[in-house]
């Protein structure tokens, strides 16, 4: 059984890969996937600490995070597809419908 710090470092690395994906890429779908990676990293930290503390509270919160992730996936991908239908682009720099 590896100590909790191993899992926390893995979670931190995963989160930072997600952050750099969001900052570096221009494709909204890649940005979306990177957000999923960040949510996964946070879930990993919750589960490893729930394990270390011997309580199920962390795992219950992971369930709520997953609910939000599922809602985000449904609405986010719907928005991406609707934008693609109207503007024919998935470039985050060209999606400026809300700007005037």
């Amino acid at each position: 059984m590896a100590p909790p710090s191993y899992y926390m470092i893995l979670s931190a690395v995963l989160f930072c890969i997600g952050v750099s994906g969001v900052l570096l890429r221009r494709n909204v779908l890649i940005i979306f996937m990177s957000i999923e990676l960040m949510l996964n990293a946070v879930n990993l930290a919750f589960v490893s600490l729930s394990r270390a503390w011997g309580s199920v509270d962390g795992q219950s919160i992971v369930f709520f995070v997953m609910t939000v992730a599922a809602a985000e996936a449904a609405v986010g991908l719907g928005i991406i597809l609707a934008t693609f239908r109207n503007r024919a682009t998935v470039n985050a720099d060209e999606i400026n419908l809300m700007r005037w």
């Binding site: 890429r25 221009r26 779908l29 991908l77 991406i80 597809l81 693609f84 998935v90 985050a92 720099d93």
Partner: peptide, 18 residues
């Protein structure tokens, strides 16, 4: 996500950094 990727054509064009 796979459906969204497959349904948007010309998606490979956007590869440059932000």
């Amino acid at each position: 996500t796979l459906f969204a990727v497959m349904l948007t054509q010309g998606i490979a064009d956007v590869t440059i950094s932000n």
